[in-house]
Design a protein around this nucleic acid. Structure first.
Length: 559
RNA sequence: GUGCCUGUAGCUCAACUGGAUAGAGCACCAGCCUUCUAAGCUGGGGGUUGUGGGUUCGAUUCCCGCCGGGCACGCCA
């Protein structure tokens, strides 16, 4: 595979470097992929960097390095170009090598053991059970799930976790809103709760509650409604169960599964919130003012101190959040990743400050954050405001129903997290055939079709045994090279927690395949050539399947 | 106003973390199906990378100043 080839070439250059400039560290050697084919398969800019240090002409240095390069079976040619680039060209055999690497590893091709089984908790979605999931949650679900899969592929032991804010003021708002509906109130009436939720779904919940229907089920405890609009506790329980159930169904439809759900309410019932507060007080990081308890977050880089316990005795939202993150640390997660909307970025300082204040030797940068920007939804040429309280809404369920699960997931994950996202629902619907996901899936379906038509009954074993030397055309070599890049794509994407790179890679691989498919015929008369080509597309299919699976997108055999 | 993020083709986005002539997809123009799926392929037009400086062999990338956009600055979450 390519990482193997790359490290081999790096080693060759390091040898040469040791001869030409013994003082310089081998770490100077980097290899990159030239954008243009005429610049070879790999390119090394080290001579230009050395030129400053050695105060010599870079092309001269490059010439000496090339002369000092040990011989290698994989290296076909190397030349000096431009300001002093050393361009390396591989022997076809080196590129053909990747086929056996892919087929040998199968679904695990591209995986590594870098994480060494280290436990990592990835927290995402974590929507309050106060309404259905919307597009922003969809972006987070697609992103968080793909990041989890990436880390998993690199040998980390990943736990996907969902944190429910099922205690606190917003839940009370929810209960009040449902109660108001149960009493026949309208959101426009004067008695409607000030911060109440106005959406139509509130009326549905109220109706089911009064009708004595059962809700919850599955992972959520079952709750039955009753015809009593005055029992706010019962209403609260019913509404939370109802909305958690709805969210579960949406996530299921989206193909996202969590390993663990953590309830904020449990932090109170287990006394963890109290413990955290006591620890902060004991550490001398708090003070009383205006009837409230404050945390000196300014000691940890915040621009002002924050209230922990309000004058009414209840805690502000970030206190249980700190307690929650203490549990992550105490559950053995030395690495924690939180996927959040960038609108919550001010919580980062507070949570981290709180973790410092409890004095458990938790590192300053704990947890890690991946922030994503908001999704702007366009519908009918107009922006749809996403506001739960106003009730105007584009739900994740709408998108799945209208655009399709695969397209929605691929689309939402194919932009880097910190770029703003415009999701035009009409466009995604009307032009769904132009969606990039179909392009990738189509490549997969085409390969399946050719393999079927070949009646070769090819398996990973037989493909791996094929003689690949007939694969020498420019397009075949390009395809082989592209296949070899996959492990590196996963490596970088997992380090940067940037799954969009996988989406782009898949598009490129699919493009390379479609070009090849149109230029050359796989099922040719020459049996050796046919066999080699079948093995090649068999390999492409494996990598497409691996990449799509990582993004939670299906790979249909027929389209 | 302060902090974080952001500005790349008409539109939506990339660019291997400092590399060679900044790339894809839509959209537009011209071609390709009696042959393994045309949801495809081939070619073409389209750019002062918001802007002005700086750092150096070399900048979309790093630093500084402006301009525009988003988000956050609650005893809401």
């Amino acid at each position: 595979m390519s990482t193997e080839i790359k490290s081999h070439l790096t080693e060759l250059l390091a040898h040469a470097l040791a001869k030409v400039a013994p003082q310089q560290p081998a770490s100077l050697i980097t290899l990159e992929r030239p954008k243009q084919a005429q610049h070879g398969d790999f390119s090394c800019p080290v001579a230009m960097q050395l030129s400053r240090i050695l105060k010599r002409n870079p092309r001269e240095i490059a010439a000496e390095l090339v002369a000092a390069l040990p011989p290698s079976d994989w290296l076909a040619q190397c030349e000096i170009a431009g300001a002093g680039f050393i361009n390396l060209r591989l022997h076809p055999a080196a590129k053909q090598h990747v086929v056996r690497a892919v087929l040998g590893a199968g679904p695990r091709f591209g995986h590594s053991v870098r994480g060494q089984g280290q436990p990592v908790v990835v927290e995402f979605v974590s929507a309050n059970p106060t309404g259905p999931l919307h597009v922003g949650h969809g972006r987070q679900a697609a992103l968080g799930d793909a990041i989890s899969a990436l880390l998993d592929s690199q040998g980390f032991q990943v736990v996907r976790e969902f944190y429910y804010n099922d205690a606190g003021a917003q839940i009370e708002n929810l209960a009040l809103s449902v109660q108001a509906r149960a009493k026949g109130m309208d959101p426009d009436s004067l008695q409607w709760p000030a911060d109440g939720y106005r959406g139509e779904y509130i009326r549905d919940i109220a109706a089911d509650y009064l009708g004595g229907k059962a809700t919850g089920g599955g992972r959520v405890a079952e709750v039955t409604g009753k015809n009593d609009p005055d029992d706010r506790d019962a209403i609260r329980l019913f509404a939370v169960a109802y909305l958690r159930r709805e969210q579960d169904m949406d996530l299921l439809a989206f193909g996202v599964r969590f390993d663990n759900y953590y309830l904020e309410s449990s932090l109170y019932t287990e006394g963890r919130v109290e413990q955290v507060v006591n620890a902060m007080v004991a550490a001398g990081k708090t003070y009383e003012k205006d009837g409230a308890l404050w945390l000196k977050t300014t000691d940890f880089g915040d621009d002002k101190d924050r209230v922990m316990r309000k004058s009414d005795g209840s805690y502000t939202y970030f206190v249980p959040d700190v307690a929650y993150h203490v549990t992550k640390w105490e559950r053995g997660f030395r690495r924690a990743i939180n996927v959040q909307g960038s609108d919550h970025h001010s919580t980062i300082t507070r949570v981290r400050a709180g973790l410092q204040a409890v004095g458990k030797n938790i590192p300053q940068g704990y947890p890690d954050y991946v922030l994503h920007k908001m999704v702007t939804v366009m519908k009918g040429g107009e922006e749809v405001r996403i506001s739960k309280r106003a009730g105007s809404y584009v739900t994740l369920r709408d998108l799945i129903d209208e655009v399709g699960r695969d397209a929605t997931r691929f689309f939402l994950v194919s932009r880097k997290a910190d770029s703003e996202f415009t999701f035009d629902v009409d466009l995604a619907k009307s032009q769904s055939e132009d969606n990039p996901v179909y392009y990738v899936q189509y490549a997969h379906a085409r390969i399946c079709s050719v393999l079927e038509a070949s009646q070769s009954g090819m398996t990973a074993e037989t493909a791996g045994a094929a003689d690949l030397t007939p694969l020498t055309s420019a397009r075949e070599l390009a395809l082989l090279q592209r296949l070899g890049e996959y492990p590196e794509v996963l490596d970088i994407a997992s380090r940067e927690m940037a799954p969009h790179q996988v989406a782009f890679y898949l598009r490129e691989l699919a493009g390379e395949f479609h070009s090849y498919y149109n230029a050359e015929r796989v099922l040719v008369d020459d049996p050796a050539l046919k066999r080699a080509r079948l093995a090649l597309i068999f390999t492409v299919r494996q990598v497409l399947v691996n990449g799509l699976a990582l993004l939670g997108v299906g790979a249909p055999e027929k389209m």
